[in-house]
Simulated scan of single mutants.
Amino acid sequence: MKHCLIVDDSAVIRKVARRILEEMAFSIKEAENGEAALSICQSEMPDVVLLDWNMPVMDGYEFLTRLRRMPGGDKPKILFCTTENDIGHITRALQAGADEYIMKPFDKDIVAAKLQEVGLA
């Protein structure tokens, strides 16, 4: 079974993403910010991270740059999932090591397509 870490400060978004990914046979862990997510990654590196951009404590971009410097941090596929649709944000995320970019709101078809693109569906 593949493991997904959902990182978003919105409990509603985490719940929606959890439901979608569990239907796709992923086991799920959740974090409400990047700092909590890094702690989870230190104990168990996920296969994929569904990552929000704007969060308190540590945002998604800082999480991504720190994750990629960790031992094994180059392995998880990172799907940035955010309302930020500015091309600058997208470029910055991809240059920092994100694998794909999903705009909110999203649905199962969008998530499945992105996971297929990164080889996890």
Score class of each variant (00 low, 15 high):
Met1Ala: 08
Met1Glu: 12
Lys2Gln: 12
His3Glu: 14
Cys4Ser: 14
Ile6Tyr: 06
Val12Asp: 11
Arg14Pro: 01
Lys15Ile: 11
Val16His: 02
Ala17Glu: 13
Ile20Pro: 05
Ile20Asn: 04
Glu22Trp: 00
Glu22Gly: 01
Glu23Phe: 02
Glu23His: 08
Ala25Gly: 09
Ile28Met: 00
Ala31His: 04
Ala31Tyr: 09
Asn33Gly: 01
Asn33Pro: 15
Asn33Glu: 14
Gly34Leu: 09
Glu35Met: 05
Ala36His: 02
Leu38Trp: 05
Leu38His: 14
Cys41Asp: 06
Ser43Cys: 08
Ser43Asp: 12
Glu44Pro: 14
Pro46Ile: 14
Val48Met: 08
Leu50His: 15
Leu51Lys: 10
Leu51Ala: 06
Pro56Lys: 01
Pro56Phe: 06
Val57Pro: 05
Arg68Ala: 11
Gly73Asp: 06
Asp74Phe: 01
Lys75Ala: 11
Lys75Tyr: 06
Lys75Ile: 15
Ile78Lys: 07
Ile78Leu: 11
Thr83Phe: 10
Glu84Val: 06
Asp86Ala: 13
Asp86Leu: 03
Gly88Phe: 07
Ala93Glu: 05
Ala93Gln: 08
Gln95Ile: 07
Gln95Glu: 15
Ala96Asn: 06
Ala98Glu: 03
Asp99Tyr: 03
Glu100Lys: 14
Glu100Leu: 00
Met103Thr: 13
Met103Ala: 15
Met103Lys: 03
Lys104Tyr: 06
Phe106His: 05
Phe106Lys: 03
Lys108Val: 08
Lys108Asn: 07
Val111Leu: 12
Leu115Glu: 11
Gln116Gly: 15
Gln116Leu: 04
Gln116Ser: 12
Leu120Ile: 15
